[in-house]
Simulated assay, not measured.
Amino acid sequence: MKLTAEKAQELLSDPFEAHDVEFLVTDKVISKDGSVWVKVVPYITARAVQQRLDDIFGLTGWRNEFREVKGGQMCGLSLLIEDQWITRWDGAPLTEIEALKGALSGAGKRAAVQFGIGRYLYAIEPYFINCQLLTDKSECTANYVLIRHDTSENESTYLSAQWETPELPSWALPQADFTPYIEAIESALTKTELTKTYRSAIKFADALGRKDLKEKVEAARKAQFDNIEIETKRERKAKIESLNRKFKSFTKELESAENETVLELAFKKIKPELYGLCKESTLNAEEYQNTLNQIKQQQISRIQGA
């Protein structure tokens, strides 16, 4: 079966197994209380990228071309899709350890991202991990890190520590269940909540390069938006009906006042309650207030004429 561009994109963008994802320390921090933290971000190994390309295109369906540039390497990754070679370029600087090898590996991985390989990892927020201090590297049972600690303006020492590999979010794993994100949209009770759940779901669907998931997210959002609109109108109608019933009781209370003192007390009690009900029903209280004022004046005239 011939590999179509759409199918190639889906296969290229698929999440990797957790063991193919490694984490890079991008920052090290010593807090005021002496605790040690590292900031880490996920990345795909070069071997995992190469295996993904072999699995999809075989040994003859992809190739790399490298060019040396000032301070690093450029990689042009070419893929054979629908009998056409498609090439995308990206580069990486020389690294501190094994400078050339690091630059070649980095450029190859970045070029692969241009085709969607591992691109979903950019949607994962950095992890901040509390480290466990060690007396010696031989004690390390997890990921080792050496952190410089400035003890004074002119003196510093190095602390040995280890950090545990974080777990990837469920959506960033193969065969991940995307149902919770759809269910979150479908259970949103307000437009604000719907917007929040929608943005989260569409962010991950987009990061995965999954057109089918994006379509499901959009469909779920539209359906729930319509449901919220219907429920909002129903609730507003019910509140208006309740307000109108309450307003009738207000008018009766004013009309039954025996004297001006009782009338004024009733009017002062009704006024804030009326404003509260109108606000809850998103109605302008002015018209209701004007009606109450008229009833009050009419009742005063009756009392004084009696």
Rank of each mutant, 00 (worst) to 15 (best):
K2M: 13
T4K: 01
E6R: 05
A8D: 04
L11K: 02
L12F: 05
L12Y: 07
D14I: 05
D14C: 05
D14Q: 13
F16S: 05
V21N: 01
D27G: 03
K28Q: 01
V29D: 07
I30D: 04
S31Q: 05
G34H: 12
V36M: 06
V40M: 05
P42Q: 11
Y43A: 06
Y43C: 08
A46T: 02
Q51W: 08
I56W: 12
I56L: 13
I56V: 15
F57L: 10
G61W: 02
W62G: 03
F66W: 14
Q73L: 03
G76V: 03
L77C: 03
L79I: 13
L80A: 05
D83C: 06
W85Q: 10
I86P: 00
R88P: 03
G91M: 12
A92W: 01
A92T: 00
P93R: 02
L94E: 08
T95N: 01
I97K: 15
G106K: 01
A107L: 01
A107P: 05
G108D: 06
I124N: 06
I124W: 04
Y127W: 15
F128W: 12
F128Q: 10
I129D: 07
Q132I: 15
T135G: 15
T135C: 10
D136E: 12
K137A: 12
S138M: 13
S138I: 15
S138A: 14
E139Q: 07
C140V: 08
C140F: 08
T141D: 03
N143E: 05
E155K: 09
E155A: 11
Y158G: 03
L159C: 09
A161P: 00
Q162T: 12
Q162L: 05
T165D: 00
L168N: 10
L173K: 13
P174T: 11
P174K: 08
P174L: 11
P174C: 10
Q175D: 14
F178L: 06
T179A: 13
T179H: 11
S187H: 08
S187K: 10
A188N: 00
A188Q: 00
L189V: 09
E193V: 08
E193Q: 11
L194E: 10
T195Q: 04
T195L: 02
T197I: 03
Y198N: 12
I202W: 04
I202T: 02
K203S: 14
A205N: 10
D206C: 05
L208R: 01
R210E: 05
D212T: 13
D212W: 09
K216C: 14
A219N: 12
R221D: 01
R221Q: 14
F225K: 12
N227A: 08
I228D: 08
T232C: 06
T232P: 06
K233T: 15
R236V: 13
A238K: 13
R245T: 12
R245V: 00
K246T: 14
E255Q: 14
E258R: 15
N259T: 14
A266Y: 03
I270C: 13
P272D: 11
Y275I: 06
E280L: 10
E280W: 03
S281P: 08
L283C: 03
Q289E: 06
Q289Y: 07
N290A: 12
T291A: 09
I295H: 09
K296L: 08
